[in-house]
Design a protein around this nucleic acid. Sequence first.
DNA 1: TTTTAAACGAGACGGTACGTCTGGTCTTGTG
DNA 2: CACAAGACCAGACGTACCGTCTCGTTTAAAA
Lengths: 210, 210, 210, 210
Amino acid sequence: MTDAPTPPPSSSPAPKAPDASRRSERSRRAILDAALELIGETGFAKLTIEAIAARAGVGKQTIYRWWPSKAAVLFEACVLEGVDPAGVELPDTGDLAADLRTVLRATVDELNDPRLDAPTRALVSETANDPELGRALTEKVLEPQLQAYARRLRAAQEAGQVDPDADVRIALELLVGPLFHRWLNRTLPLTHAYADAVLDLALRGLAPRP
Amino acid sequence: MTDAPTPPPSSSPAPKAPDASRRSERSRRAILDAALELIGETGFAKLTIEAIAARAGVGKQTIYRWWPSKAAVLFEACVLEGVDPAGVELPDTGDLAADLRTVLRATVDELNDPRLDAPTRALVSETANDPELGRALTEKVLEPQLQAYARRLRAAQEAGQVDPDADVRIALELLVGPLFHRWLNRTLPLTHAYADAVLDLALRGLAPRP
Amino acid sequence: MTDAPTPPPSSSPAPKAPDASRRSERSRRAILDAALELIGETGFAKLTIEAIAARAGVGKQTIYRWWPSKAAVLFEACVLEGVDPAGVELPDTGDLAADLRTVLRATVDELNDPRLDAPTRALVSETANDPELGRALTEKVLEPQLQAYARRLRAAQEAGQVDPDADVRIALELLVGPLFHRWLNRTLPLTHAYADAVLDLALRGLAPRP
Amino acid sequence: MTDAPTPPPSSSPAPKAPDASRRSERSRRAILDAALELIGETGFAKLTIEAIAARAGVGKQTIYRWWPSKAAVLFEACVLEGVDPAGVELPDTGDLAADLRTVLRATVDELNDPRLDAPTRALVSETANDPELGRALTEKVLEPQLQAYARRLRAAQEAGQVDPDADVRIALELLVGPLFHRWLNRTLPLTHAYADAVLDLALRGLAPRP
DNA sequence: TTTTAAACGAGACGGTACGTCTGGTCTTGTG
DNA sequence: CACAAGACCAGACGTACCGTCTCGTTTAAAA
């Protein structure tokens, strides 16, 4: 997102790209940690670049040099904290319902985890008004996870557990969409029971036609 | 939303409640219009209280007097522009699938309307980090609409078109959740075909058991 | 210097002139006082706008609104502290030598006063690189004083105590120039004796030719 | 200027004295030249250490290693450009008035030379608030020149052209003080005629008593 | 109709944070 | 080990808005 390591032999009047090889890893970590700490402590409100710099013991310019916005900092901090976004894979025990239940319940737990709640909300919030960031977030974090769902559903389809005509992309959104909706809008509590109920309804819709 | 129009029988050292009866409707409209204009023109970024006041030809204090935050202004502006949130009712032609298709397609159209997109995103964005506002938004706008879905589904349940054991609340989230997810995250285009596919899958899950 | 009270019915795209009638005298004094305090305490080095604002308990914008530079603040602070620059008048007892001795010795004392030394040096320093400010300083402070010398010398000339062919302008610079030179360059101590010696030499040069 | 080039026989915990013998003369010249160029082009304002380093094609540290302040750089640059400050000597044709006229007129020309004006003003300006630098400047540049005046006046005194009781130190300040005053304060144009008039008045004050 | 108190427009105020710039130090190759 | 290069910490710069607080000036309910 931030690192275009090869400022491709462009010929533009480049605004001076910093030399990534000289970058201080120490500062980078301090900044990311400080960002996560602050958003946990005081919410997105107090998440100012100045506060991050102060907390990290870092000059402001060191943040501005490497990140285009505080949302980008937050984004990298979350990715760093979270799972490896590349190698996401859903379990496949052969029992589709059980596998999805496991994953959806885990998702519910994550969304309810206060440590992850604040930064995630903040990111989604920024995303709404910053399409650039939205695209990065979707591409790097969201889509890999959705693709994992897609793969698992496709496997189930091939195993004859899911209607072969169903669109797995839509099927997967039928699962995660409601959870996301309830989490973001805070309409009703987001529980394991809810995840189970959504899963049950969705799977009935996906069942192979008799 | 903000004004409990308690007149002045209060005797407490209240921070001085303004007299709503003397309020200038002219200014109120100018402010709300300016807010919508600005968010359409320059995005939520440039939506400053100062900018709204300037555009509306109004003193800043007139905004601070009547609204607690710029999100509240935006909220009222959207409500004013949008449909009457109270009397929402879904059509009931007896054909559940057709009725829902109509409504979901209309929802898709609204979410794709560039005039509504920016302010709605801004509101959802604010909502994510301002639970207070989130509750108001949910209560005044979102829930009434969801309740309308619930009523229609209940009617279908009573007509034997939907599994009597199904939880209509969850059923309705199965419908709107995926649409909301796609709209907010911009993963894939939000189309009528998508709405139809979601509806189809969900209804199959809701069908009465044989 | 700063106050063009009538933004003369110009037609330029004026950068918005503040309304001087609403200006807070309290803030103005606090700023001027803080500036003098700081330059006395920590020298011209620590004289930052931020420090002045902080010391004065004032927002930075309040300084930027009314003064174009920190030198301008300092200038106004000095003028405020110093004598009324308009009504300067040298004594005229009829004894030119005695009158000038009194004034020159007083000047020496002022230049040696540590309270006035720092701000004056700072102003002269700024003057060297800011002709705009230099002109203001010369016009408002320096020239009125030099004119007072000129008037006194002219009177002496008319009384026959000074060569009628002498240029009083140059005569007066013969008096103050050496003092200024020694003060600014710190070559040798600036004492009453020095003032007396300069005066003696100069007056001999000015004596009517036999 | 500040560094007594004590090699490294020191054993103290000195902050690391650079080895002057390895110093790059090429860099030194480039830095001094760049400093003079920049002050001529853009004034003292844009005279940044960074700008000097960039213009000279030199690392910033190379400047900080060898000079304590940018004023010190400027000072050395001026000395390098200017006359040899050690061997200043006034002409002595036997005609004091003529000799002084020559020198004072040359001084006027130098002060009016735009190439010298900016750096000199900058130096004097810095001097006003940096006694350390001021002393160096006085000692290395100003005093040698003043001493030359003193020698010439003393010679004249011995030749009976000047009152033997006069203090030559003060006499010389009577000559240069007014010029300096007019130059720095820009009150009136600094011309040959002015120099002549000052000289005339001063010499009359210095004439041997009858 | 007159009075009069509150809402109004305007905008100055004390502040906070912004994003940029420079100062001076430290680090990383290169010669 | 001096050097060019430039990343680093630090902090002032001047600007933009914040939310509060006067100022007159409408303006609409009470007298």
